[in-house]
């Protein structure tokens, strides 16, 4: 399993990387941790002429708190997120999601930005970033823009990133008071990818009713999505077990549900409701609700 030949470029700065990727256009591919792209190249499903390895761009490796937001550099590895004390306190959904990805070795090398840009429809990060209402920063030589997570994923392995743009950062809200988050997944036993993964974020008001809710679902459709119908049933209401179950029943509403060797569309639809319910129950419990 040897990739096709390519020219290798190892820029030291983001500016240099942006220049290279603008120059190569469709013939260039960005390499971050390589744990999505290299497997594709080894199978020759991807054969870029130019590989721009941004692994040495130090300015893309950070986790920082900025007022009520958390910003994470695109090259931060799954393990760095999993083990971050700041994130465990300020955005526990991210470490909880990181722990579910691949295995120890994969988490040492794979990156948050790389996974999001790759946009595998069964990857874990999209569910979490969607539930949090996060944003993704894209930079090119002509400037930078922030893309809401909901607009970022277009199709299987396709995002709104342009050929000359590099995904540089992810921004999510820090955990406010009376809030809880959770990610649960039903993993394919061999690959570890999500047959269904559900992430939930719930913020309660003083009366214990749901003030804000975000539910992100991966593995179920051609792209990860935010389950608006689920959120609609919960918002403004007391999150009783009955209300949560009612809401979760809408988990696969409005999407074309995947069917494959491991799970039929009917079974996946069922699992989506079950895992959405479990994620919501955990999030509500952590928010201090009943």
């Amino acid at each position: 399993m040897i990739p096709e030949s390519f020219e290798y470029h190892a820029p030291q700065t983001l500016a240099e990387a942006s220049r290279l990727i603008a120059q190569f256009g469709q013939e260039g591919k960005i390499l971050a941790g390589g744990h999505s792209l290299l497997p594709l190249m080894k199978l020759r499903l991807a054969s870029p002429r130019h590989l721009v390895d941004i692994g040495r761009v130090a300015e893309l490796k950070y986790i920082r708190e900025d007022a009520d937001k958390i910003q994470i550099g695109a090259l931060t590895t799954h393990y760095q997120i999993e083990s971050s004390e700041l994130l465990k306190q300020k955005c526990p959904l991210l470490p909880e999601t990181a722990r579910e990805i691949g295995d120890v070795q994969v988490r040492n090398k794979g990156t948050l930005g790389g996974s999001l840009a790759h946009a595998d429809p069964a990857a874990d990060w999209p569910a979490a970033i969607l539930a949090l209402g996060g944003e993704v920063e894209a930079r090119s030589e002509s400037g930078s823009r922030w893309i809401p997570a909901q607009e970022f994923f277009v199709e299987m392995l396709t995002t709104t990133l342009q050929a000359d743009e590099i995904l540089t950062a992810i921004r999510v809200p820090a955990l406010p008071a009376h809030a809880g988050e959770a990610y649960v997944k039903f993993a394919q036993p061999a690959s570890g990818f999500a047959i269904v993964g559900a992430a939930a974020r719930v913020v309660l008001d003083d009366a214990g009713a749901v003030a804000e809710v975000g539910v992100g679902i991966t593995g179920v459709a051609a792209k990860p999505y935010r389950a608006a119908a689920v959120e609609g049933v919960l918002r403004g209401h007391s999150p009783t077990a009955k209300r949560i179950a009612e809401a979760a029943a809408h988990a696969a509403e409005g999407v074309e549900v995947n069917a494959d060797l491991y799970a039929s569309a009917e079974y996946r639809t069922h699992l989506a409701a079950v895992y959405t319910r479990r994620a919501l129950e955990k999030a509500v419990e952590r928010a201090g609700g009943k």
Partner: peptide, 25 residues
């Protein structure tokens, strides 16, 4: 295919699967 772990080595102290890393990296 980054699955079995037989090729695990330490790269700058971290365990990685060396079948999914380029030598140039």
């Amino acid at each position: 295919t980054t699955t079995c772990g037989a090729c695990t080595i330490l790269l700058n102290g971290e365990a990685v699967k060396s079948c999914t890393v380029l030598a140039v990296q």
